[in-house]
Write a protein that binds this DNA or RNA. Structure first.
Length: 403
DNA sequence: GTCAATTCACATGAAAGAGACCACGGTCTAGTG
DNA sequence: CTAGACCGTGGTCTCTTTCATGTGAATTGACGA
């Protein structure tokens, strides 16, 4: 009988007033017309990049800042402006933005260079060629004509963590190999200690200039939220204190503006879906819960089988005994589960790494401790709200075909 | 009682293997004129 | 003669295994007071 009501539901949905006027303003890839509280940084970036307009090579730049502090946004904004000026005078200036974290796009040396070649319109197979070959193609393509290239490498810390700093070394040396063109690099990292771990030669040439993006404070977040909210929503749909609360939540999380905007958007969606004419403060709480819940569910269900089996072991021990768990226990149970579902058990070495990965995902909380005479191990706890644990267990059971 | 040595139960690192995917060049085969 | 099918080689990439080494404090046992 649900079907009968469906048409009516859609009819009603259409006639119902939406809270939004422009939903995408709150999405993370939206570029606002003015960027608040980042004037100083944008100025600096502009100063550093400006020589590109005279076809000189700008200094390499390194940008630090936690997630959601407007690094990418500011860089993109500034470079777009430069590009506009340059293209008006038809100058040979090119700017490429590459996110190194994108899986299967630019997360290895080969793929990064291949991606660059593709930006230049060269067809590069996803694999199969030697890396040197790719470099050669890249050089040849770039060096055909005189031009200045600015290469923005977002989340560069991820790339280096995965593949080592050899790439950076190669990249910084590119200029020596080029005759006509010049490349300058902008690295964006959300890890503040990233540069310390680099090879000193790479470090000095890569971070000729450095800019740090401090986290937003609660007031600044409020500004940003107000600015976006004005465009995103109809007038007067935000209840008293909504913005303040959003900002406060996000400020607590190292001033992450992306988080704040997401919170606001989800809260609005919840309010709208439940037929409220206004976003109320309690919707923010609900939104926070929903975001966290969704994040966890998503993370759990996209894990590969082995990881799921390991997580399942952890969760089932935890449910039975809400206490700290040690690696050995998990491994024993895990082996049993593998047997049950016909999976080849991994070695303990690997399981140890997987536990580390699950920790990184924030699904569990693992801390290395020494129990003295009784060895050294990880102290593991499930770090998921108890309302979600049962759900996780179900997902895992389904994923593993456990009965 | 004190202190260094021992010991446990893994953690952590490095290197190498397995297997999937892929490009390229050479050889073979069948169809065509 | 030529297009396409079919190898073999060599490359990347991810997930693992293997082997080796590290580690921090409870415990032990020798030692001296």
């Amino acid at each position: 009988m649900v079907q009968k009501g469906l048409t009516a539901f859609f009819e009603k949905f259409l006639t119902k007033e939406s809270l939004f006027t422009d939903r995408k303003v709150l999405q993370s890839n939206y570029t606002p017309e003015t960027i608040l509280h980042r004037d100083a940084q944008i100025q600096q970036i502009a100063k550093i990049m400006a020589p590109a307009l005279r076809l000189d090579k700008p200094s390499n730049l390194f940008v630090y800042g936690k997630t959601g502090t407007g690094k990418t946004l500011s860089i993109k904004y500034t470079t777009n402006q430069i590009l506009e000026v340059a293209s008006q005078r038809s100058m040979p200036l090119k700017i490429f933005y590459i996110n190194c974290k994108l899986k299967r796009v630019a997360d290895t040396e080969y793929r990064l260079i291949a991606q660059l070649c593709r930006e230049f319109g060269k067809e590069i197979p996803p694999t199969g060629l030697p890396t040197d070959e790719i470099y050669r193609i890249f050089f040849d393509t770039i060096d055909k004509e005189k031009q200045v290239i600015i290469l923005i490498l977002d989340e560069i810390d991820q790339l280096v963590k995965k593949t080592g700093d050899e790439i950076l070394y190669n990249l910084t040396r590119i200029n020596a190999e080029l005759h006509k063109s010049q490349i300058s690099l902008i690295g964006i990292s959300s890890d503040l200690r990233f540069a310390e771990a680099l090879d000193s030669r790479v470090k000095s040439s890569l971070s000729e200039e450095e800019i740090i993006f401090p986290p937003y404070n609660a007031m600044q977040l409020q500004h940003i939220l107000k600015q976006r909210g004005k465009i995103a929503f109809k007038e007067g749909v935000m209840d008293e204190g909504v913005i303040e609360k959003c900002a406060a939540y996000a400020a607590r999380e190292h001033g992450d503006a992306r988080r704040a905007l997401e919170l606001l958007r989800v809260a609005a969606e919840i309010a709208e879906r439940n037929g409220f004419a206004k976003i109320e403060v309690r919707h923010i709480d609900e939104a926070e819960e929903k975001i966290e819940h969704d994040r966890i569910i998503e993370a759990v269900s996209t894990q590969p089988k082995q990881h799921q089996a390991i997580l399942y072991s952890i969760v089932s021990i935890y449910i039975k005994r809400k206490d700290i768990i040690f690696t050995g226990e998990i491994y024993e149970l895990y082996k049993g589960i593998c047997h049950q579902v016909g999976l080849r058990p991994l070695t303990q070495r690997r399981v140890s790494d997987v536990i580390g990965e699950l920790d990184m995902l924030g699904l569990i909380n693992a801390k290395v401790i020494s129990k003295g005479r009784y060895g050294r191990t990880r102290e593991i706890q499930v770090s998921v709200p108890s309302s979600t644990i049962a759900k996780i267990k179900n997902i895992l059971e389904e994923g593993l075909d456990l009965t």
